[in-house]
Amino acid sequence: MEMNRTTIKRALKDALADLSGEGLLEFCDELRDRRTEPRITRRSVEGKSYLQIIDLLVSTYTEQGALTVVLETLRKINCNQLAETLSSKTKACADKGDPVFRKTSNGELDSKPSQEALKYRGSHQPLTAAGAGGSPGTAKKPEEVEAEAKKQVLSECGDPCNERLVLSRSKIQFGKYKGQTFQWLLENDVDYTAYIIITHQKEREHTMCQTPLMANKDSLTRYAVAYPEVLKEVKSKKRPLRPRQKGQALVGFGKYKSETLKDLYESKDMKIMSYVNYLRGMESTCEPRSKMCDAIKYILQRDRRKTTTKRSNATFGPGAAKKRQARGKRAQSTRAQYKAQTEEGE
């Protein structure tokens, strides 16, 4: 049986129905005092029922506009609890599943992980999910993911026939953010979203298999690329990476495929450190130009850089300077002694 969904107009009628006779009069009086165009006249609301007043507001301002006007007016007459109830009931009606992208101080898209994302990654085991160290069987079937998303939409009084809204409530089945919704991901880590889309598009160049994991990535890609902000980020990451950006590339294979090379190399997790050490020994056997080969090259380059830094510190660091000064003094002392001995001999 189909559930009755709350619409904005129905919620508005319920809200005004809760006003007493005097409360409705005060509401209409405040409504007439609004200075924003279009204005509501005394004659248009005088002697009208709350149902007629709602019809007037919707025809004048549209449903969404009428909601804003009613909320403002209720708060002005101190019906704050009624306003909060109305706001809560209509939240899903206004929600179309679009993410609210974070911006930097200069108005640019903030694609880096939010503090919430970093906290989530720190409190969860990100590498046990399908596609990031787990079995593909750990990903739910697409019909299960969709059913859960529709159930969530209905619980919020939303429209389960709105595909974008349903996709926004669909949950990720892989990687470090497994269990979060697609909308949450776009609001908290556009950078990671872009990398997932790029790697998935490359996967689709070689296979059309429809495993639960691949289906989940298909859905995420379909949802995300509808937004210009994400598309711009994807295009920027498709450009060849400069040497110093190589660490931002995804591993792209094996149990840690959804991690970046930098995160893999710098991890303090014993299992990951052991895996990195294993890759060091695979240099002579890896397939040229493969993802594994790229990862090994990055690891060995980082190793060499670290070794060079240590040597540099040994040569030019504070301790090295003191040693050079000591050697210089000893050499100077030796020369002075030699000169003195020579002069005595003469």
Rank of each mutant, 00 (worst) to 15 (best):
K217Y: 04
S219R: 11
L220F: 13
L220E: 02
R222F: 08
A224H: 02
V225H: 01
E229L: 04
V230K: 01
L231V: 15
L231K: 13
K232Q: 08
K232Y: 01
E233L: 06
K235V: 08
K237I: 07
P240K: 05
L241D: 02
L241F: 14
R242H: 09
P243F: 04
G247F: 05
Q248G: 12
V251R: 01
G252T: 08
G252L: 03
G254D: 05
G254W: 02
K255M: 03
K255I: 08
Y256C: 04
K257I: 02
S258L: 13
E259L: 15
T260H: 04
T260P: 03
T260S: 11
L264K: 00
E266H: 14
E266C: 14
S267F: 08
S267T: 07
S267C: 09
K268H: 12
D269S: 12
D269K: 14
N277E: 10
Y278W: 14
Y278Q: 15
Y278V: 13
L279H: 04
R280H: 09
E283T: 10
S284Q: 09
S284E: 06
C286N: 13
P288L: 10
R289I: 13
R289L: 14
M292H: 04
A295H: 04
I296F: 01
I296S: 00
K297T: 11
K297Q: 10
Y298M: 10
I299V: 10
L300Q: 12
D303M: 06
R304I: 07
R305P: 05
R305H: 14
K306N: 13
T307N: 07
T309R: 14
K310W: 05
R311H: 11
R311P: 00
R311E: 04
S312V: 05
S312D: 13
A314Q: 08
F316K: 02
P318K: 03
P318H: 03
A320W: 00
A321T: 13
A321W: 04
R324L: 00
Q325D: 13
R327H: 05
R327Q: 11
R330M: 12
S333E: 15
R335W: 09
A336T: 10
